[in-house]
Design a protein around this nucleic acid. Sequence first.
DNA 1: ACATCTGTCTGACCTTTGTCAGGGAATTTC
DNA 2: GAAATTCCCTGACAAAGGTCAGACAGATGT
Lengths: 292, 292
Amino acid sequence: MSLTDISRVRRFSRAVTTETGALDQSFLGRGRPLGVARVLNAIGHGRGDVADLRLYLGLDSGQLSRILRGLEEEGLITTETAEEDARRRVAVLTGKGSAEFAEYEALSNANANSLLSRHPDPDKLLEAMDFIASALTRDRITIELADPESPHANWCLDRYFDEVNRLFKQGFERAKTCDPQAPAMRPPVGAFLLALSDGLPIGCVALKGTDQGYAEVKRLWIAPSARGLGLSKRMMQETEREARRLGIGTLRLDTNEQMPAAIALYEKTGWARIERFNDDPYPTHFFEKKLT
Amino acid sequence: MSLTDISRVRRFSRAVTTETGALDQSFLGRGRPLGVARVLNAIGHGRGDVADLRLYLGLDSGQLSRILRGLEEEGLITTETAEEDARRRVAVLTGKGSAEFAEYEALSNANANSLLSRHPDPDKLLEAMDFIASALTRDRITIELADPESPHANWCLDRYFDEVNRLFKQGFERAKTCDPQAPAMRPPVGAFLLALSDGLPIGCVALKGTDQGYAEVKRLWIAPSARGLGLSKRMMQETEREARRLGIGTLRLDTNEQMPAAIALYEKTGWARIERFNDDPYPTHFFEKKLT
DNA sequence: ACATCTGTCTGACCTTTGTCAGGGAATTTC
DNA sequence: GAAATTCCCTGACAAAGGTCAGACAGATGT
């Protein structure tokens, strides 16, 4: 790695710490020290569990305990013992606490908004941010089962169709293809998987159950910002695992010659070329994989 | 601005603070509090002036004074009164201090390096980082006079020629064009300007003096990561100001039809199309501007 | 039933950071 | 040359962050 490259990284990190340092400042606008504000925000984001908080914020048990007591005295939270284990405690926002949390959220949003609107090309800035965030949190991307009609799923599918439409010379109409119905992508016949990075969806894949002895893999999509991280391979592995769990023995999929990266992936991971098995006008290549 | 966009910005900022938080941790590996380490590093980077330090690090005068005394007791720095103003003090690294500073630099470099080498496509990551760093530090981009043969200038010029070569279908050979000689780009006949963002060069422009009653604007280049920020306009304004300072009354420039953005800029900022005034094979458009 | 482990809380203590008023020396202004 | 200003230092104090040993209650294993 050349020295210039390193100084580019360091310039980035200086720029970002200066900026996000200013972002931290916004937390101070409400007369509460940073540590306390961070704890309040973490609780607001659903991390009420004390042990979880300690881990997440890297705080000493004594320190966290004091901060929690302080918040309790302010009337912003209450603490209850957890049901499943009476040693553990869980912090919960009171009404006043929720209002205060909302104020912090508004501050954060306003900050993000002003950062974005100061830039002449916000879309490009967002793309670069997504790319970097995906790169940095790569080790923390999770793949989870989701409902095919949930907002996150729809967000991904919309992007998928947009992209396919742009890619195919002849265009792509959702009505003409065999778009799987939601029930076929739900257990026990099928599944829908989302890749989440820090809570935001960055990829999806569907497993569509059929009554013909096989299931189809469809709608594999990875956000542009998350490509090149080996995520599609992970998604496919998870899909196979899910298929096994559902007792499915044979997987099929179709794809188009204009997606060479996808085709290469399938060929590298044990999929076999087969004859056309449907009359969808868009796909040109057909694959099958037996699960053992 | 949509809520999704805002959550994308916030995801970025969380990802980055987690990562650069870990980077700050590295400063703690040497048994010194963060504030002290920051001061030592700033001094190592040439910011020895006490008033400058205070401004740069945002420290209270009392606090900085205490930190400096601490570093002095450790034998890492000495402070001297400035020559030009005996009230001001300047901190200088001792031999031991330089060694310590070098250790911090090595830590930082190793950190940046590991971040980069963990990524499958470091070049793309660097580009995204440059883009964001330029966007965030936009208000702090400075334009300075530089020597046309300095390393920074050469770095920019190399990139300029690379890019022109890629842009022109017929290619571009530095030998065939009228490449101005360095002395023509130095005062008192000409100038060479660099755009610096946090010390790194991100653009250049040359003012080439001639003995024919006008000067030529040449080699206007902005790093891809810094485009769209209105920087070329600022560079051209600075060039005109510099020309006035040198007593130049007429500016000329040539450009190529394959650079529509540049042509649009010239037309919008008071340049007039004129006849070809040289026999350089590459340019297709010629402009002139009278300075009043 | 007993010992052991786990999760949280408390109190004590220290370091670091943040803030402010005032003093002394050098410089600038009039 | 006197007054005002600028720059750095000092001392005092408060707030916040960090660390640790021990107490207590609940969970777990034998």
